[in-house]
Every structure is written in structure tokens, then in C-alpha cells.
Design a protein around this nucleic acid. Structure first.
Lengths: 222, 222
DNA sequence: CAGTGTTTTACGGAAAACCATAATCCGAAA
DNA sequence: TTTCGGATTATGGTTTTCCGTAAAACACTG
């Protein structure tokens, strides 16, 4: 079982619940941080002191408030932690249900478990801790398990995302081309952008551009 | 102090936190419901049995799951409860920060307190309970207190929302007009819809329709 | 170097959206 | 009934987007 745990979570209520869960496991050596920056700092310090954490339980979205922070999302925090301490076990603990985001956490940040906050999340958190402490198995909440099976939309690259973001920000195609030309981005012709858009609309089964942006926003792509 | 409390909240973690808070107040007679339907049922029953609740603490947004429900949001629940038991005290307890929604709760459903879930919400919940148990004063979390001063954007009506929803669903203006004509919705001419759209774009400072849908989606209007 | 295939860009007509103005409808007041 | 004002609808012209086709650029091969 885990010996030293850190929790990154801004909401008091979730902190309380995780704390109690850890108590049930007789884990007493744990700390929590309400900001990602603090969490990373503590993890860094623990490594330096040769007393590293062996489990991180992290939320994904953190509320903005008066305080200025460098890391604004749990995704970033997890990414950075994985870099500086590759062997730490990580549980993502969030209300996020978007398949793409969850999949990316498993594939890019190699998280060990994804627990969806909801009507039964404490039980699932316990399951996750049990499983990943005893083995290298992964855990994912059943409600979102299907996310991992989602077929890869490898067809969509960075430029596509940029185009979508520009569209959603209200820039017209002509303006976008100007911007691309000024930034030396490779496809900087009207027809290239048009072709991309038509491919995207095809891929997402969108009737028109408005629909396309609506769909991709819902999917959390932009 | 309150004698009999009911909590409407789907997340286990918040239920736990509220439960502990009530314990701190030595309130032992409380129940919780994970679905709005259940909450309303219990409140009805309590009235019939002549042992009514004197406080409702309700979340606003509830997750959909396999179960079919009649009341899907806390706003509806609160409205209905206020109708059948006008003297019950009500605390809305939510992450919602939209001024309009909060304002409407105070004005239309006459809630007694609004506690914003966040980094310090348990303390605020305690304050709220203290204040509204002792008097008829209202309580609102400081982070959203300004919401009550927000001026109403009365300009946006039901038809506007419908238009936005249709747009975001991928129907073209022409198709929309057809639909409106077939459903006997009053403005069913091309120019009327165009006028509405141009007003909306003006109001939300949107460059074009794509931008407009993007903005209104972000604001949670559609 | 010619030949072939792929990608990027250019062009042009059709459709949709955009925008200003004019015509019509409709209820309230004179 | 007539007149007025506001809202709705109609019209026409401009811009933007859409979509197919063709040309050009590039790369790879024999």
C-alpha cells in the first residue's frame, strides 16, 4: 500500500472525502494542495529530501481566484510531475467525461487510474487505490471506460485545431489566411484552409461551419 | 437552530461534507437525496406526516445517469418546494457563478442563501446556516455577491435562444425558417431571423455567426 | 530527364449569409 | 374610419463561404 500521498484538489469537500478514504487505508502520511503550483513544489521538495511521494491524486480543473498561478490545470500538473518523477503513481480524479481528454491522460501522461467524480466516486476511488497499489494495472471508472476504445482521430493535426480555434474566436477565413501568412504557417492559401475545413466537416459530420465549431467545442477539442 | 434538514446533492463528497457540517451544529435529523425527484417526494411525505423539514440544502446541477427523472435541475426542485412549503428555508449550494441564474433564484424562488462551492465553501456554508437560522436575513457567498447587482439582459428572449440552439445544431437559416413556419412560431421570415441574429451579434460583440455560437456556448446560454 | 503521383495553390460559379432599405401588416389612439 | 407607430416581412445588392476543377509545385522513381 502507499506510504506517502499528495492530493491536488481545490474544493474543500473533495479534499475531505479523499482524506477520509486514505484514513480507511490507514495512510496517515499525506498532504494536500489547493493549487497546482503548490503541489508541484511539494513534490519537487520531497524528491530533493529523498522522501518522494508514491501517489498523486489530482483534480483536473481548478478554479481561478485572486492568486496568480503558473499551472492552471491538472493535466499540466500531471504532465510535469510525470517528467520529474516517472515512477510515481497517478490518479486523475475529476468530473471530466470527455473521452479525448481522458485518453490523452492515459497515453501521454501515463496516469494509472481515472476516477470520475459522481454519485459513487468514493467507492471507485478505493477500488483504484487498491488496484494500482498492488499491481501495474490501470483503473478507469466504468462510466467513462468506453472512452479508451474511442477510435483515434489521427486525421486531425495541429493546424486543424488552430483553424478551429480561430473560427471559434470569430476570425474570418480571409483574416485567418493573413495571420497564417504573417506567422509563416505552411498552408497559407485560401483553398488550403477551405479544403481543411471541408475535411473537418466531413469527419465530424457537420452540416456547416457553425455546426462544426459547436461539435468540436462539445468534444473538448477546442 | 434547524431541527430537520434535507439535502439534495448527487455527489458523494459534498454529501459527506454537508453531513459533517450538520454534525458540527448538532443536527442529527437529516436526510439526503441523490435525485431531485427523491428529494421532492421526501419533502411531500414529511408535510403529510406533519413533520416537515425546516431546511433544504440543494445543489443546482445533477448528473444524468441511467435513471429516468422528472426534475433534472435543482432550480426546478427549489421552485416546486417553495410552492408546496413556502416557509421552508432554502440554501442553494452550487459551483454555478452565472449572475443571472443566482439572481433568479433569489427573486423567483426566494432562496435564503447562496453558497458557492469552492476552496472555502464549508466555512461559508456554516455562516449561511448560522445567519438564516437566527433571522430572515439572506446570505450569499462573497465571490458572487456582485451577481445581484448585475443588470438584467432582458433583451434576449426565448426565440433568440431557440435560434441559437438551432444554429449550434447545424440547421441553416433557410431550414430554420421552414421549421418555424411548420411549428407556427411567430417570426418566420428570413429577415426577421436575420434581424434577431444581427441583434444578438451586436449584443455579444460577435464578429460573425460562428463566433456568436461559440460565445453563447461558453456562457452556458445554449 | 521524362513520367507519375501527391500536395499545394489558383480560379470561378453557386449558395449562403450579411446588411440596408422599402413595403406591409396590425393594433391603438384620435 | 383614419392615422400613426412599431413590428414583421419583402427585396435587392454586397460579401463571405462553399465546392468543384484546373494549374502549379514538389517529390520520388526508373
Amino acid at each position: 500500500m502507499f506510504k506517502k500521498v499528495i492530493i491536488a484538489e481545490d474544493f474543500e469537500e473533495f479534499n475531505l472525502a479523499v482524506k477520509q478514504t486514505l484514513n480507511d487505508f490507514n495512510i496517515v502520511n499525506f498532504q494536500h494542495a489547493k493549487y497546482c503550483d503548490d503541489a508541484l513544489l511539494k513534490i519537487r521538495k520531497a524528491i530533493q529530501d529523498n522522501e518522494p511521494y508514491d501517489l498523486l491524486i489530482s483534480d483536473l480543473s481548478f478554479k481561478k481566484d485572486h492568486r496568480e498561478v503558473k499551472i492552471i490545470s491538472g493535466d499540466e500538473l500531471i504532465q510535469k510531475v510525470r517528467e520529474i518523477q516517472p515512477d510515481i503513481k497517478i490518479i486523475a480524479y475529476s468530473i471530466e467525461e470527455k473521452g479525448l481528454r481522458i485518453k490523452s491522460l492515459f497515453e501521454n501522461s501515463e496516469i494509472d487510474a481515472y476516477v470520475l467524480k459522481g454519485r459513487n466516486s468514493i467507492e471507485e476511488l478505493k477500488k483504484a487505490i487498491n488496484i494500482i497499489s498492488a499491481s501495474d494495472q490501470k483503473f478507469i471508472s466504468p462510466e467513462v471506460a468506453s472512452a479508451l476504445q474511442e477510435k483515434n482521430n489521427y486525421e486531425i493535426d495541429d493546424v486543424d485545431i488552430q483553424i478551429l480555434k480561430h473560427l471559434s474566436a470569430g476570425t474570418s477565413q480571409d483574416e485567418m489566411i493573413e495571420i497564417f501568412k504573417n506567422s509563416d504557417i505552411k498552408p497559407n492559401s485560401k483553398s488550403a484552409v477551405e479544403k481543411r475545413l471541408s475535411k473537418l466537416k466531413d469527419f465530424f459530420k457537420a452540416n456547416n461551419t457553425v455546426h462544426l465549431v459547436s461539435i468540436t467545442k462539445d468534444m473538448g477539442i477546442i
